[in-house]
Amino acid sequence: MSEVNATPEIPQSNTIYINNLNEKIKIDELKKSLNAVFTQFGKILEVLAFKTLKHKGQAWVVFEDASSASNALRQMQGFPFYDKPMRIQYAKTKSDIIAKADGTFVPREKRKRHDDKAKKRKDQHDANLAGMGLNPAYAGAYGAAPAIAYPGGAKSMVPEAPAPPNNILFIQNLPNDSTPMMLQMLFLQYPGFKEVRMVETKPGIAFVEYGDEMQSTVAMQTLQGFKITPQNPMLITYAKK
């Protein structure tokens, strides 16, 4: 009867694998309870249970005799253990403790696992370095540019060739530490707002896009000369197409 439940592909083994265990039980108590319930079938060499996400609700019990494992699998299949029926099958791989006893233990397996861990840590370290590398360049570019030249230049341009009305505004004379979020909060309150675009290499200017030119005109007229800081009244014109 219980053979039907067991997976026939997995061959008989000294070790049984159990899942569908109650995950609320602490690991130490779980091991003690598994030891207590399975000692009736024979001597137990090892009980393995872990609380990682991958191994939660699972355990391995290693018996001295393979016949003990067979009896345990047959008799305890579906046994209500802490209110959940146990699902038992043979383990797919030989346990280390058994492999060591019969001489088939391969140390390379252990070393490989360790190397994988070390490699993973190294990758994370490289990623951190890459992240740090970006900051100096950004700060340097941001801090190096002078602010005073553009407002003057922009002012001289306005009388010469004012752009025709369109849905994108060109903002000048912004404080150096302006951020897109600041401008967005400002311009968002007018209908039709789409987005703010700033130029990294040229602090102090920005483009603000609206749905159509009427909406952008309303925003321009209302916010013309708005002072984010006392020294920097905004200068707003239509962007050149």
């Binding site: 130490d28 091991k31 003690k32 030891n35 001597k43 137990i44 060499l45 090892e46 009980v47 019990v61 290693v62």
Partner: peptide
């Protein structure tokens, strides 16, 4: 020392 790391006497 048994599977749960207790000192055990086996009279089985």
């Amino acid at each position: 020392f048994n599977a749960i790391k207790e000192r055990e006497l086996d009279l089985r």
